[in-house]
Design a protein around this nucleic acid. Structure first.
Lengths: 204, 204
DNA sequence: TAGAATAGAACACCAGGAGAACATAAAGGA
DNA sequence: TCCTTTATGTTCTCCTGGTGTTCTATTCTA
């Protein structure tokens, strides 16, 4: 298979892959025409037909609202996927997500030890360039060196992402946000769950 | 097959291998002429024809789908690798790196269009959470919507990473650093080279 | 001097678009 | 149950411009 697509066919296919999910129902030809700036569904139908013959779109035999992409068959074995554990917001427990989810993480953003991914909520680390919505890669560990950014569980309930400073008999957690104050705890109040090793953000 | 290439044919082939990926679609003869500084597609066609006969370029028999290289079924280091083009520091040309280098980029940090990776030098976008040393993923484009963060070439020499605002007859580039001022240019001073679609940082 | 490369014009060809007409399925209504 | 309406997919034809192809004359270069 895999006939060579013309440029326009490629464009339309790209568009479908990018925007198809936005439609509440699979779109009609007219709706797609509208979205693509065409004024003749006949023309679009011809293009779609080509994509069907190329095996990229499921054939729709007179079905209505029948435009669907064929399943990306191969679930990538995803050698480079790490589990997405949930959301971390300063001062709250990590909010786990129910269904198993994974996130692709390039090799250089992780370590050789077990890692997992969290998504950040809130701006408590904004001065470190970690923003609301960022994905962060955490290496699983129960101890840290001073100056590392850690996921810490305070009093067994609140999870936070903070820079850590450990002294004799005290643990100080420094947020990276000028509107927040460092907080001091006794070592047995603070349980380290991992340290920050990578961060990713998408802009689109 | 495997006729000896003339010098010019070799040059063109080298160019294709190096720059073909930059085109959003396989380029037409006219586009390639433009890119190569030729003014006659007839001439280019003869050269391309020779490359086709040598088995290096996919034949296009009156089909209009642009110039494609035949599949180098060889290497392709990783499906998810993008070329690392060099360093970008506000106010300086992009510093290209000589040797070919690639960076692993997870799928959700890029788009379906051609992308590449730069490494940031300096703090000009620090309020956007983009810090010195970060890897950024750029989608190759020559236009942008207002509010997008772009790689812009100013006066043909200085490259910067800034949020763009385009008005009638003026382009304003907003740095995300309180110590720097927005700068206004005329549209023909500013050439957009791509838009920011992803960002990565390592902490170890 | 011969082959390579370029410019430029002219040509051939079809992808892609518009739009109309038709076919068919879903939804109602009587 | 049958007919009508409506929404939507399908199939046409026609046309245009973009795009590949071919040719010839000219310049470049070894």
């Amino acid at each position: 298979m895999s006939l060579a697509l013309t440029r326009r066919q490629q464009e339309i296919y790209d568009y479908l892959r990018e925007h198809l999910w936005e439609f509440p129902h699979p779109p009609t030809l007219d709706e797609l025409c509208n979205a693509l700036g065409l004024s003749s569904k006949g023309s679009l139908h011809k293009q779609i037909q080509a994509l069907i013959e190329a095996g990229l779109v499921e054939p729709m035999n007179n079905q209505r609202r029948g435009i669907r992409l064929v399943e990306e068959d191969a679930e990538l074995p995803a050698e480079d996927a790490l589990p997405m554990m949930g959301y971390i917001a300063a001062g709250q427990p990590i909010e786990a997500i129910d269904h198993q989810e994974t996130v692709q993480v390039p090799e250089f953003l992780r370590t050789t030890r077990p890692c997992y991914v969290l998504q950040v909520r809130g701006d408590s680390m904004i001065d470190e360039g970690i923003m609301d919505g960022d994905h962060i890669v955490i290496e699983q560990r129960d101890s840290a060196r001073n100056g590392e950014i850690v996921v810490a569980l305070v009093d067994g309930s609140e999870a936070t992402l903070k820079r850590i400073e450990q002294k004799q008999g005290a643990v100080i957690l420094h947020p990276a946000n000028p509107t927040m104050e460092p907080m001091t705890f006794s070592p047995d109040q603070v349980q380290i769950q991992g340290i920050l090793v990578g961060q990713m953000r998408r802009y689109h």
